[in-house]
Design a protein around this nucleic acid. Structure first.
Lengths: 166, 166
DNA sequence: CCGGCGTCTGCATAAATATGCAAGGGCGGC
DNA sequence: GCCGCCCTTGCATATTTATGCAGACGCCGG
């Protein structure tokens, strides 16, 4: 097999294109075995063997987890964690929060009495790189952004997360 | 093999004892293959075969993840979370709490002034199935158990957590 | 006391995954 | 253009994991 037969640029017969396809497949449907993955890749015109898929899976760090009677592959822990943290943050924000504003580097979140530290923990876990840290009082969380624009980005991201249906 | 050869109660040759040992091993050292796990169990005087370990791993939902050149087993995310929550609860209880008692379905935790909601949050996060919910005042947390026996179990579990070194 | 049924386990083996090896191709230096 | 080096892959196979089946045991219900 030639490593670089095509160059359609973003999604085909290169190694990284294939790996992107694998991530996509694993994310969107249930993949139980490497052979199954090989089949799915074939139907995307990516012809590979199980051996290659095995190597890809290692490089991508995919998890193999027991699911029902059998096993399935999942996205790497880092992705799962980020996603889980995101969703917990959504819950925390939507349940306990009354407002968010940013003034320069500093963000203020008004939360319900006693829930500030809960919200702060959720924020910490989400690991935004724009966010240097949080301080929780009883009903207020103070956020310290890494820069003024970072603060604006963070505000936008939080608003998005808050509105997301997920 | 007999399923209930012993009844020393807390850690031996029953299925659940073995599974606890497996969790313990996976937590504390790097387990790369099921055979390796079999060996480790042997040295704890738990004689099993790879087949049994395979079934245990499925039941426990252990993750198999690529690690360096090779693979290793890890605890499922749920457990990791539960464990983290447990440990936070331990901290919360031991730092802010002065006493726990149960009367029928209702539990009362006396906490230091202003810390009740903190403790309550930690309890909520620990997701005990015996626990229907909590109400936090300023220095008192009220717990509502799902049943009388659930209340007793919960009390026992909380006391254990409180005393645990971990 | 005697089936009957369900659970748990080992054994043997099937199924799935990982890997040593060698081949093919790209790329840079000469 | 030729050579050497590196990267990627398939093939064949080793290694690892899952499972069909049968035996052993406990727990009823009669």
């Amino acid at each position: 097999m030639s490593p670089t037969v095509e160059r359609a640029g973003n999604s085909v017969a290169t190694k990284s294109g294939r790996q992107r396809a694998i991530l996509d497949l694993v994310r969107s449907r249930t993949i139980r075995t490497q052979e199954e993955l090989v089949g799915a890749l074939r139907s995307r015109h990516l012809d590979v063997t199980q051996a290659t898929v095995s190597r890809d899976i290692r490089e991508l760090g995919l998890l193999r987890v027991p699911a029902g009677s059998g096993v399935r592959y999942l996205l790497p822990a880092a992705e799962i964690d980020a996603e889980a943290a995101r969703s917990r943050l959504h819950n925390a924000l939507s349940q306990h929060t009354q407002g968010i504003e940013f003034i320069d580097l500093l963000g203020i979140i008004h939360a319900q009495p006693g829930t500030a530290s809960l919200v702060a923990v959720a924020l910490d876990n989400a690991r935004f790189e724009e966010l240097a840290g949080t301080v929780a009082g009883d009903d207020t969380v103070l956020l310290i952004a890494r820069s003024r624009p970072a603060g604006q980005r963070l505000l936008a991201r939080l608003r998005t997360i808050l509105e997301e249906p997920a």
